[in-house]
Nucleic acid binder design. Structure first.
Length: 549
DNA sequence: GCTCAAATAT
DNA sequence: TATATTTGAG
């Protein structure tokens, strides 16, 4: 059963009474989750097999608003089938295992969220949001009628909130709308995933909604246990949207709006140049109003008092920026001209200036060290302290050395990145000069399940102290064991020089196996790079099977 | 209008 | 705590 907007409008004690289908083979886990859900006055039907669960869904007497389904490596195939068979039901997957491919597949098959066990009450509390989201975005096609419902629905919520402001003047800290917002403090219990009712429309400053007409992927920024994640809610093709398609002409800038003091109520609005007017807090004026807006007295409350817009420098936006800078020449690039070239509505000169500042800082302070190590022969004392157009390996350099790739083609280190999970640094890791900026985030911070794709990316054991796990000497190509280098048996990470040497050796002798600890670029990334260079015919790659979970 | 650095947010 | 972004002074 799909809960409709009208159902929600008439639902007095929402989300109390939410009917939850629970599918979990582990009976202990199932009963634990069931108990927690029931404490929130949700009505839970637990099932231990897909068959039972699907029967219950098909049985017209049983209708559910949301499903919580456990998945493991062993039962994943069945769960995928379940997901396909229950597309109308917002389904939250849970698992003890953090397996990226399983997670991706589930999301791609329409799961609305993937939660890693154990499931806390806080995680479970807000599953109702998926019901609301589904209600207003049924099938991903927001009809005018459903938009109207959203308007009415949110309008009524706002009305009540505004009344609360009048009486309590603290709606931000503690949303009191019992019918829609769980009673918990919004900071204390951030929504595990908060579809922000914006897929079919978005909230405008004046409280109105504007249709989203573009077919561009819709991303949402949500808070998961205090961690912001970008979640694509376009069912059915989520996985394909995890990377930015460089061929996509539309560059979105996501402007985060934060209602003062209420982190969980923040929302990210994607702005599409030429199609949308800037509709955050009058971003063009945000610097002028900033003082007033940051005034704590004005942070919460009625419309129009939203805090400044925050520009999210997405890879695409950054790519535009870099292109503009390069077009102008690094030395001639000034904010106003960059802004002109970027042609992104909503972006201010201040935003660009700020980004430019960081860009320059990065080049001045990070690159020289890295580049000088790598390109000592290019040192030129007459140059400024950075090398604007030095080549960077975005693919194995031996290909270039063999003239498979035009030698003049180079990538600025600060080049186009393909994407980054929020929270991951954008500028790469200064400690590894050979590391192209592209995809640096894959490994700059631990992210279970994602393996580094970049050439020469050191894949090192955790810095903890399990000596037996450190790669052992592997002929001439292996890392030396720590003991042979020194004294600290706990310092398992080789020095940069050692890594540099190994990488150089690996590059110069591509026919030899890579040393343990270095990973080759993924076939896809190499092919994509070659394709970008206009090279379409390459020898069939040696396929190393993808990392299995 | 630009740059830098402090302040603030995440 | 680290990093990203905004803000404001010069």
């Amino acid at each position: 059963m799909v809960c409709t907007a009208n159902d929600l409008l008439e639902w007095k004690d929402f989300p109390k009474g939410l009917r939850v289908l629970l599918l979990d083979e582990d009976r202990d886990s199932a009963s634990e989750i069931k108990l927690k859900l029931e404490e929130m006055e949700y009505i839970v039907s637990a099932f231990f097999s897909e068959h039972e669960a699907l029967s219950a869904i098909l049985n017209k007497n049983e209708s559910f608003h949301v499903a919580v389904v456990e998945v493991s490596i062993q039962n994943s195939d069945g769960r995928y089938k379940f997901l396909e068979a229950s597309k109308d039901l917002p389904t939250i997957m849970t698992s003890k295992e953090q397996c990226l491919s399983t997670m991706m597949k589930c999301i791609a098959l329409g799961a609305v969220e993937f939660l890693i066990k154990p499931l806390s009450k806080e995680k479970l509390r807000n599953i109702w949001q998926h019901v609301v989201h589904k209600a207003f975005n049924a099938g991903g096609s927001a009809t005018s009628e459903s938009l109207k419902s959203v308007k009415e629905f949110v309008g009524s919520v706002l009305e009540i909130q505004l009344k609360n402001i009048a009486t309590q003047n603290k709606v931000c800290e503690e949303p009191k709308h019992a019918e829609m917002v769980p009673n918990d403090n919004c900071d204390k219990f951030p929504a595990p995933s908060t579809p922000q009712l914006k897929q079919g429309g978005r909230f405008l400053d004046d409280g109105d909604f504007q249709d989203r007409t573009s077919g561009s992927p819709v991303k949402e920024s949500v808070d998961v246990d205090g961690e912001t994640k970008s979640v694509d809610t376009t069912h059915g093709n989520s996985a394909t949207q995890m990377e930015v398609d460089p061929t996509q002409p539309t560059v979105e800038i996501a402007i985060k709006e934060e209602d003062g003091g209420c982190e969980s109520s923040k929302c990210v609005v994607d702005l599409l140049p030429k199609h949308y007017e800037v509709n955050t807090v009058n971003p063009g004026a945000n610097t002028k109003n900033s003082k007033k807006e940051s005034d704590p007295q004005n942070m919460c409350g009625a419309k129009g008092n939203r805090k400044k817009a925050k520009v999210d420098w997405t890879p695409d936006l950054h790519k535009k920026f870099v292109q503009a800078v390069e077009q102008l020449g690094v030395d001639q690039a000034i904010p106003s001209r960059i802004l002109e070239l970027m042609k992104v509505e909503g972006l201010t000169r201040h935003n660009v200036a700020s980004h430019l500042q960081k860009y320059r800082m990065h080049r001045r302070h990070i690159l020289p060290k890295a580049e000088e190590r790598r390109w000592p022969h290019l040192r030129d004392s007459t140059q400024r302290s950075y090398y604007p157009y030095k080549p960077v390996m975005a693919f194995p350099s031996y290909l270039a050395a063999n003239h498979t790739i035009a030698p003049g083609q180079a990538y600025p280190v600060w080049g186009q990145q393909t994407g980054r999970p929020p929270g991951f640094p954008m500028w790469g890791s200064p400690g590894y000069p050979w590391q192209p900026a592209i995809e640096t985030w894959h490994w700059n911070k631990p992210y279970p399940g994602i393996h580094a794709d970049a050439w020469g990316c050191p894949v090192l054991p955790p810095p903890a102290c399990p000596p037996s796990t450190f790669p052992q000497v592997q002929g001439a190509h292996g890392f030396h064991s720590p003991d042979s280098y020194g004294n600290n048996s706990c310092d398992l990470h080789p020095g940069e020089e050692v890594i540099d040497k190994l990488v150089k050796e690996a590059i110069s002798k591509p026919w030899l196996p890579l040393p343990i600890g270095l990973k080759p670029p993924s076939t896809d990334s190499v092919l994509a790079e070659l394709s970008r260079q206009g090279i379409s015919t390459v020898p069939p790659p040696q396929i190393n099977g993808p990392q299995q979970c």
